[in-house]
Design a protein around this nucleic acid. Structure first.
Lengths: 189, 189
DNA sequence: ATCACTAACTAACAAGTGTTAGTTTAAGGA
DNA sequence: TCCTTAAACTAACACTTGTTAGTTAGTGAT
């Protein structure tokens, strides 16, 4: 277990504050108070407030991109690929409850990294959509509007960070299984 | 068609800016520029920045509460009630693309109205959950985890405001029908 | 012509913003 | 003991924030 550096600690605490109030509403003095130091002291460890946001968002976005690559390169059926994606979201969301909030709500405050983030997101959605389209073509999935399927699954998965903390009794596996049932098999008899 | 007052115009433009950058990142000078006037002039029409947010969020939240009441008082089957809720979200989201963003992302910046908002949201979720539970008890729905069903449906519906503007070719009815298919009947063969 | 009203304006304020510069303190190794 | 380094500090800067006060210009009714 690698020991957390002071810089990593600051970023972790920042992510927590960003989740509660959003990036813009959190001041460096808020962050310093949460760390038990003065605002100016933060700059011994980090370059700028903006840099903290970049680090939080880009690292998670790249994790998703990497996970999607693995799913795509696999020889799984379409439905199994979708199940893998659900598992990927459950895993990343569980490990980054606070960071996921910034990813979802504060990406527009990225500056130098905004275009990079948008390209990662765009590619992720393209890959996701393509899996669904293949499933429909191969009759593995019903002939439903593929974009609506992606939208529905993706918004649910992207919001997991809100919901996981309220349901701590559910472990990652159970949660993924339940989500698969609901998202893929529907709810009516 | 009632003519829009200057105050309503300010609130509408504010909601649009709030959607793009979030409440905290939008300054009164931003809003004034978007209106083509000076910041101080805004105060001839509105009381405070905070007040604008209150108005945007509470009006929509009350619309949802009212809609849920109608659904509950109806004698519809559980699945038809769920379909009515989907339609309610599609309708409100279509008519309040910008306001929905504030409702979802900036509710924590409510001050005097925060507790009221939270109680509305809490009751809405309780009512939603109760409909699903009744559907399971009466065997109208599969025996799935009711909270996961609600979470999945609700996050999808709450994110409609992101998605509707990208798909203008789909009218409200088609969208609601497609969502019903996907959310209720599932996607696998 | 006077009045009230709407809606804009300029000027300013007090508080808060991210950040920099320079300094101090404590710990560990040579 | 001396030197280095990590990590805190105080003080300050230039700018931005929401908001207030007081004023001005145009419009329509009496």
């Amino acid at each position: 277990m690698k020991q957390e550096t002071r810089k990593e600690e600051i970023i972790r605490v920042a992510a927590k504050l960003f989740k509660e109030k959003g990036y813009s509403a959190v001041t460096m003095r808020d962050l310093a108070t949460a760390m038990g130091i003065k605002a100016a002291s933060l700059y011994n460890h980090i370059n700028s407030k903006q840099d903290i946001l970049n680090t939080i968002i880009i690292s998670i976005a790249e994790e998703f991109t990497q996970g999607m690559k693995l799913v795509q390169d696999s020889k799984l059926s379409c439905i199994d690929k979708l199940k893998q994606i659900v598992a990927l979201h459950v895993k990343i969301a569980s490990e980054n409850i606070y960071g996921m909030a910034s990813l979802n709500n504060d990406w527009m405050h990225l500056e130098t990294q905004l275009n990079y983030y948008l390209s990662l997101r765009d590619n992720y959605e393209k890959d996701f959509l393509s899996i669904i389209q293949q499933g429909i073509e191969s009759s593995e999935l019903k002939n439903v509007n593929p974009e609506i399927v992606m939208f529905s699954m993706l918004t649910t998965l992207r919001s997991l960070y809100i919901w996981i903390p309220k349901k701590e009794e559910l472990n990652a596996n159970d949660l993924a299984n339940n989500l698969n049932k609901v998202l893929i098999h529907g709810i009516n008899i």
